[in-house]
Design a protein around this nucleic acid. Structure first.
Length: 258
DNA sequence: ATGGTCGGCAACCGA
C-alpha cells in the first residue's frame, strides 16, 4: 500500500502535476491540503476517471482538504468540530478497516498573535479528538501539513528560527503530545538524518537549491501500521520556467492491503 | 540584506 500527502497551494493550479504524478506513482491514497476551492468547483471527475474515487471539503479562497483513494472511502466526516462552521482543515474516512485523517493545521502567522493561539487551540482539539475516538493499538493513519517542524534537524536554520512560528516550543510540545499518544513519524523512522525537507518558502529565491527548507508535512501511523512501513521518501519537483512553484510529495509504502 | 513570490480573486489576505 502506497500512501502520500501533498500541500497543493490550489488543487486547480496544480491539477496537471497531480494527475501526472498519480499516473506515474499510482499511490493507493493521496491526501491533499490547501485545495483552495469550494466543493462545487472541485473537478472530482478528473480523479474518478483515473480510478480514484475521492472525498473533499473546501471553502472559498483558503484552506481545503481532499483525500484521493483507489479504495472507496467510508464513514466520511469533514470538520474537526461538530455543529459549528469552521475552516476546511480536516477530513477523515476509512479505507477498508483503516481510518485515514487528512489535516491542514493553521499556519499561525507569528507567536503572540490571535492566529498563533488559534493554531495551538486547533492542534489541542485535534489531539483531544484523536484521544477520544481512536486507540493507539489499532490502525490509524494521519497525514498532512502540520506547519510545525519538530526538531532542529527539521529546519535549515534552527538557531535563526528559535521561537518563530513553525519552530516554536509551544507548537512542538503539542506535536510531541500527539506523537506520545501513540503515533510514529514514518519519514523519521526511515530517515534519521536531518536536512530532508518538505517545504521551501517561495519568497526566498532558489530556496530549494539552497537547501533552505523545513520538514513540516508528516505521515503519522499507530504502531500496528508503523511496524509495517517499508520505506518513506520525499519526491520533490523543482520549479521550472513554465512551472513556477516547487512541489513536494511525501510518500510511504506499507506492507498491507486494504 | 529585515526583502522576496505564489494563488485566489478582485483588494489585499494568507502562506
Amino acid at each position: 500500500m502506497r500512501f502520500a500527502t501533498l500541500n497543493t497551494n490550489s488543487v486547480r493550479a496544480r491539477l496537471p502535476i497531480i494527475i501526472d504524478w498519480l499516473a506515474r506513482i499510482r499511490p493507493d491514497i493521496l491526501c491533499l491540503q490547501e485545495t483552495k476551492v469550494q466543493d462545487k468547483g472541485f473537478r472530482a471527475h478528473v480523479f474518478q476517471d483515473m480510478g480514484y474515487p475521492l472525498i473533499f471539503g473546501g471553502q472559498k479562497s483558503y484552506n481545503g482538504v481532499a483525500t484521493i483513494s483507489d479504495t472507496p472511502l467510508k464513514n466520511i466526516r469533514t470538520g474537526l468540530y461538530t455543529g459549528e462552521s469552521e475552516e476546511a482543515r480536516f477530513i477523515c474516512a476509512e479505507a477498508g478497516a483503516i481510518p485515514i485523517i487528512d489535516v491542514y493545521v493553521p499556519q499561525g502567522f507569528a507567536p503572540g498573535t490571535e492566529k498563533f493561539r488559534y493554531k495551538l487551540k486547533w492542534l489541542t482539539d485535534l489531539i483531544s479528538r484523536i484521544e477520544k475516538e481512536y486507540n493507539p493499538d489499532m490502525p490509524l493513519l494521519i497525514a498532512g501539513d502540520f506547519n510545525v517542524a519538530l526538531e532542529p534537524i527539521d529546519v535549515f536554520d534552527p538557531e535563526g528560527f528559535k521561537g518563530e512560528v513553525g519552530f516554536h516550543p509551544d507548537e512542538q510540545a503539542l506535536m510531541c503530545k500527539l506523537l506520545n499518544w501513540g503515533l510514529i513519524d514514518i519519514f523519521r523512522k526511515h530517515q534519521p538524518q536531518g536536512g530532508h525537507y518538505t517545504f521551501w518558502d517561495y519568497r526566498i529565491p532558489n530556496a530549494l537549491q539552497r537547501k533552505m527548507g523545513w520538514r513540516i508535512d508528516y505521515i503519522l501511523a499507530t504502531a500496528p501500521l508503523a511496524k509495517r512501513s517499508r520505506t518513506a521518501w520525499i519526491d520533490t519537483w523543482a520549479r521550472t520556467l513554465d512551472r513556477p512553484s516547487d512541489h513536494t510529495f511525501l510518500v510511504s509504502e506499507f506492507d498491507l492491503i486494504f
